[in-house]
């Protein structure tokens, strides 16, 4: 369903290292930083594919490229064999930042995005989603008054408002209490959509993922099921996902 071929992203970063003294303050130099290096994977229809890796390994950069927010330096992205721009309506994205307008109500946020994605019966869709996510009671309140859990649920509703077939979820349970995280997890699990997930919560990854791609320093170094990843740890009799993570991240 989603095919990523030889994806590479190189950033030109203005180095700040030499600016510590005044003499060099006005003279910055650029360094090239490879955030994603020659990454190839595909996501099958209705599977939850998780990108796992340490901080700075390139997970969010890949999602940004997949949704068209960043232009790849090299490589290609196909959705059902076609280019991304033709499938914008098929993709829903939830970043760590909620992309919600705090100064308007939850309803107005959802209505706005529903109209941008040409959802016809948007009021019914909003009602359905909010009932399911248990945020209906707060829908007519300003988002600035929401708790982080409710904000996350509203962000999820925002990503799902146009009923996309593909969903990119960047750490969807970040900052949630165990109960709220469990609610969001069970909701994601039952969505029956093609999902690309990133998370640092290994229980969540193990519970939700059909397959996992492990990224380290921008490179996809392992891909497979949870069990496949555990097999890379040779020095433990029954390794868990944490052991695999540490092993692949080169920390053990």
């Amino acid at each position: 369903m989603v095919e990523v071929k030889n994806l590479t992203k190189i950033f030109n970063i203005k180095s700040n290292v030499k600016k510590r003294n005044l003499r060099n303050f006005f003279f910055s130099h650029s360094i090239k930083f490879t955030a994603v290096n020659d990454v190839t994977f595909n996501i099958r229809k209705n599977e939850i594919f998780t990108l796992l890796g340490p901080n700075g390994s390139g997970k969010t950069t890949i999602i940004k490229m997949l949704c068209g927010l960043l232009e790849p330096t090299e490589g290609e992205i196909f959705i059902e064999g076609g280019c991304l721009s033709r499938h914008k309506n098929d993709v829903g994205v939830m970043f760590r930042t909620s992309m919600l307008y705090n100064r308007v109500t939850g309803y107005e946020n959802l209505r706005y995005f529903a109209r941008l994605y040409e959802v016809n019966d948007f009021d019914q869709r909003i009602e359905e989603l909010c009932d399911f996510l248990n945020i209906s009671a707060w829908l007519n309140e300003y988002v600035e008054h929401y708790s982080s859990g409710m904000r996350t649920k509203l962000a999820l509703a925002r990503a799902l408002i146009h009923d996309p077939r593909i969903l990119y979820l960047d750490e969807p349970t970040l900052g949630l209490d165990p109960n709220a995280a469990s609610e969001v997890r069970s909701y994601i699990k039952n969505l029956n959509k093609t999902i690309l997930l990133t998370s640092h919560c290994l229980d969540e990854v193990e519970e939700l993922s059909s397959r996992i791609g492990f990224l380290n320093k921008g490179e996809l170094i392992a891909i497979g099921t949870t069990e496949d990843l555990k097999k890379v740890v040779k020095d433990k009799p029954s390794p868990n996902l944490f052991d695999a993570f540490m092993h692949l991240a080169g920390k053990k």
Partner: peptide, 13 residues
């Protein structure tokens, strides 16, 4: 700075 900009940039607008 509100971090709402990506919302409109990734939408089909």
């Amino acid at each position: 700075y509100w971090e709402t900009l990506p919302g409109i940039l990734i939408a089909p607008v």
